[in-house]
């Protein structure tokens, strides 16, 4: 166990920010933060995460109405207000409700100090319906965290028929080179090589390493194609998977520190209503 203790010291001896965490509501009651959320938060402290960016996407509703994404964001706001020094919020919206989504993002950023927007699988991210949202995020100078995965299995495609992958994100990035996009959870399930290669040539697309998949070479290939400057640490709640792939990756230690610190994204956290 000594060896792993030495390896994990990377997390305790360096600043760590996770750009992909969640909280949960209790039994679909969007007004109540679950006990599980606090337990997760304790785990993150044990693992040496200094700061985290949280969102609460409504994943079970393909047509999530505004009242639900507003309630989910309110839940996140409540949690972040409890742990101001360590947490930041990302605003989830359903692009199908364009006007409400744009208003929600603006309100959350300007009034509540949210630092990012979050889109799930309600629409492909390069669908024109997302364009006004992207334009608002450019105006507000916030990154957009994009749920994705190049999955080929029937189960995923049935549950998430509009699941984007790296290619959809690259399309969006090329249309809006001034936008800052985050390809969520490289290890979130699906062909990660596909998504990594798809965004390799898009300098405005960053990626977090989150997700349960911890295939060897995932980190090394992400590093080779995307580079440490465009990689962010995040877990999506899969702590051992992501801590393991960070410490196990054969990439230079200095670049691991760069990924953990989220240096490229620090400016998004400064002075945002904290």
């Amino acid at each position: 166990m000594k060896r792993i203790k030495d390896k994990i010291s990377l997390f305790y001896e360096n600043p760590v920010i996770s750009w992909h965490e969640h909280i949960w509501y209790e039994d679909k009651d969007l007004t109540k933060i679950s006990k599980r959320s606090y337990e997760h938060f304790e785990n993150m402290k044990i693992l040496g995460f200094d700061r985290i960016v949280i969102s609460r996407p409504v994943v079970y509703e393909r047509h999530c109405p505004p009242e639900n994404f507003i309630a989910a964001n309110e839940l996140v706001k409540g949690f972040v207000s409890e742990f101001k020094e360590k947490t930041y919020a990302a605003a989830f919206v359903n692009p199908g409700f364009v006007r409400e989504s744009v208003e929600e993002i603006e309100r959350r950023v300007c009034d509540d100090g949210f630092v990012a927007a979050k889109l799930m699988h309600q629409y492909f991210v390069d669908d024109p319906v997302t364009f006004p949202i992207v334009e608002k995020c450019i105006e507000l100078d916030i990154p957009i965290i994009l749920h994705q995965g190049h999955s080929v299995d029937e189960e995923t495609l049935t549950c998430q028929p509009r699941l984007s992958d790296g290619a959809h994100i690259a399309n969006l990035a090329r249309r809006y080179p001034e936008a800052t996009l985050v390809m969520a959870h490289i290890g979130g399930g699906g062909d990660w090589q596909w998504s990594i290669k798809a965004i390799a040539d898009c300098p405005n697309v960053f990626a977090d390493i989150g997700g349960s998949v911890y295939d060897r070479n995932l980190m090394e290939e992400a590093y080779r194609y995307i580079g440490a400057d465009r990689l962010l640490f995040g877990t999506d709640g899969m702590y051992s998977s992501c801590v393991g792939k960070m410490v196990g990756a054969k990439i230079p230690e200095e670049d691991k520190k760069k990924i953990l610190s989220g240096a490229a994204f620090e400016r998004f956290l400064e002075g945002k209503g904290k």
């Binding site: 060896r3 792993i4 390896k7 801590v243 792939k245 410490v247």
Partner: peptide, 18 residues
């Protein structure tokens, strides 16, 4: 460990922490 397909560290981390 899942070797050589997965990072063994992930599974050692499970033993260490959980």
């Amino acid at each position: 460990s899942g070797l050589p397909f997965q990072y063994a560290e992930t599974n050692v981390v499970k033993l260490f922490f959980s």
